[in-house]
């Protein structure tokens, strides 16, 4: 794919095979990328449970779950909090999406997607759309304090579901200029 130079503040770009996922989503359940083969996956990286912007951001994605379902996509939140923290957070906020814990080894998943902030020990506020074959289709990093909204993800999903079935795979990734 185009540029393989690692920019610490750039998320893995479109066209890149999505790095494997092996992270717990509950005390006794782990998540893997293979589970999502055949359907688009939206990864919502957010810095921490409970912090106000994150909660708004997840509330919005939570509200939009029926819309994502209509587009055939699954949504998973990711932060470096532990599973028990995730559980309490999800219960308190009525979140219905899975929250993956990138707590141990800390930040491994975020690092693999180039969205870990070494200085802060948390992940970026980043969004990824992964295509049904496990390749990154769209990615975006938002400034920490800015809720990125869901328009970029929905636009990407529509392009993906509109184009993917007709175009034979082939990494026809559309690089999105930051919205």
């Amino acid at each position: 794919m185009a540029r393989s130079v690692k920019q610490p503040d750039a998320p893995l770009p479109p066209g890149t095979p999505a790095p494997p996922i092996d992270a717990p989503v509950s005390p006794d359940q782990r998540l893997s990328l293979e589970q999502f083969r055949g359907a688009p996956l939206v990864l919502v990286f957010y810095p921490a449970d409970w912090s106000p912007v994150c909660s708004d951001e997840l509330s919005l994605f939570n509200e939009l779950l029926p819309e994502f379902e209509r587009l055939g996509a699954k949504v998973v939140g990711v932060s470096c909090d532990g599973v028990w923290c995730h559980q309490a957070f999800a219960r308190e906020r009525g979140l219905h999406m899975m929250l993956a814990s990138d707590f141990h080894p800390k930040g491994a998943l975020s690092r693999a997607y180039h969205v870990y902030r070494e200085d802060d020990g948390v992940c970026e506020r980043a969004l990824f759309v992964i295509d049904p074959e496990g390749k990154i289709f769209w990615s975006y990093v938002s400034p920490m304090e800015v809720n990125p909204g869901a328009d970029g993800v929905l636009d990407a999903l529509e392009r993906l579901t509109g184009t993917f079935s007709s175009e034979a795979a082939g990494g026809q990734s559309q690089q999105e200029a930051s919205p």
């Binding site: 708004d56 509330s59 919005l60 939009l64 819309e67 990125p148 909204g149 869901a150 328009d151």
Partner: peptide, 11 residues
């Protein structure tokens, strides 16, 4: 609501 979402309303 959806018009707002597509216009980037995030909260």
């Amino acid at each position: 609501f959806m018009g707002g979402v597509r216009s980037g309303v995030s909260g």
